[in-house]
Design a protein around this nucleic acid. Structure first.
Lengths: 244, 244
DNA sequence: CGCTGGCAATAACAAATGTTAGAAAGGAAA
DNA sequence: TTTCCTTTCTAACATTTGTTATTGCCAGCG
């Protein structure tokens, strides 16, 4: 089994053995990071790209009034930030949620990857899909009501975890209700309300950090979920990738 | 005066005369597009990258329930979508708001630019800043209340239009109230309410498509605006760009 | 074993925002 | 001008969501 990064990128574009070798070469020296630990903090000068290999991490930002918005979940195979390549300052923070295995990739190694046309396109793919996910989150928070928003996030996590082989119809969800509330832009009290709705509708169960989606079709229907923005196909094979 | 694209990219990274020549070479054959016209529609196979040279355009998406979310404003110098490089299907639509001058850049020309290290980095910059703007929009919609959201959007447009020389303390804003409502995720009625608030507080005037910001410091204070996410400096000179 | 602290669940009430409807204002075209 | 149409503005009321507070649960730890 390939690692999560190669597996994800191959969903976008086919990689030669040499490409894969070069990718594997940069993910040396993984380190373990405890839960709830910043990998990068707003205002820092970014020094390396972080790549999550195991565990759950997130991007987040606090407003001037002290409210937190989670802007992305970073799952195994996800680059935390390509900012290091060109920007001088982090405009948001990145933190682990569960204990994680993380690889730090120096800027020069990323620049080297960008020299190779195929890998450059693969990294563009990853970045463009990240942006597509972010756009869908904006739609979610801007246009859907709280119950739908929550269901939508749970659908997305299911599909993204499936890509890297970490879910079937259930998955480990090491988030607190406050984390989810800060993801969909509601109070923790209201999050609990709509969570009870999903349970009452028998759409999910969630206890001891394990989420079971009892009927994915109904949950997608409930939330208005359309997976096109993830640009994936079934079982990680991606019919949406360009082959020309 | 350089064109808006070169002007914007030079804010991120310094370009050689040859780089600029190559950039100028791809922005041939601008065409005029009427207001309220799709440049690309969700589900399309993207065929070329659109670059806005004049006018206002936007990204948007409709939910299953028929609500529209505007996900970005595309101003002069902005690439509409790099999707064409690698993705097979548009996951959202792009439309003009005002009449626009647009350049269509074939996929191969973009790939050629990506071969040149400096231009490749410049395009990464543009993409990373676009993503940063999108994240801030998510924070805006998720964590601020309607009045602050509106003020925040107006602050951002001021700064972004200044970069390309299209604003001082006022600018042309060819949007309807419904457009703004669909941007910050509120109803048109509520948008009007908070707009009246801003007028009553003497923060702005807006009529005949011209917006005047009467006190930018107070408006930034009001909205909790922090410009760091735009990664710009004063007058388009960008102290935030890496020079190493 | 019993603290203790964080998280989850619930209730009661307050505030923000949505919905519906209609009147007023403005622009474009006959 | 008049008409027509879109947009803006306002009001009244409905609904969603936030706030504050309290309770119970459970894991970690002395």
């Amino acid at each position: 089994m390939e690692n999560a990064l190669v597996r994800k990128l191959e969903g976008y574009i086919s990689l030669s053995p040499d490409d894969k070798r070069q990718l594997n070469a940069i993910i040396r020296n993984p380190r373990h990071v405890p839960a709830h630990t910043d990998l990068a903090t707003e205002g820092d000068k970014p020094t390396s790209v972080h790549l999550v290999m195991e565990g759950f991490a997130c991007r987040y930002k606090f407003t001037a009034e002290g409210n937190r918005q989670i802007m992305a979940y970073l799952l195994p195979g996800d680059f935390c930030d390509m900012h290091v390549v060109v920007l001088k300052q982090m405009d948001h923070s990145i933190a682990t949620i569960s204990p994680c295995t993380v690889v730090d990739i120096p800027r020069d190694h990323i620049l080297a990857l960008l020299q190779k046309p195929t890998l450059s396109l693969a990294l563009w793919c990853a970045a463009l899909v990240d942006a597509a996910v972010l756009r869908e989150w904006l739609v979610n928070v801007g246009q859907r009501r709280a119950g739908q928003r929550l269901a939508h996030v749970l659908c997305e996590l299911l599909l993204r975890l499936r890509i890297v082989g970490l879910a079937d119809n259930s998955y480990d969800l090491p988030l607190s209700q406050k984390d989810l509330a800060d993801t969909i832009g509601v109070s923790n009290v209201h999050l609990n309300r709509v969570l009870q709705d999903l349970r009452r509708e028998d759409l999910i169960t969630w206890k001891a950090e394990h989420l079971v989606i009892k009927d994915i079709d109904r949950l997608m229907e409930y939330s208005g979920f359309n997976p096109n923005y993830l640009h994936i196909g079934r079982q990680g094979a991606n019919p949406d990738a360009r082959t020309d």
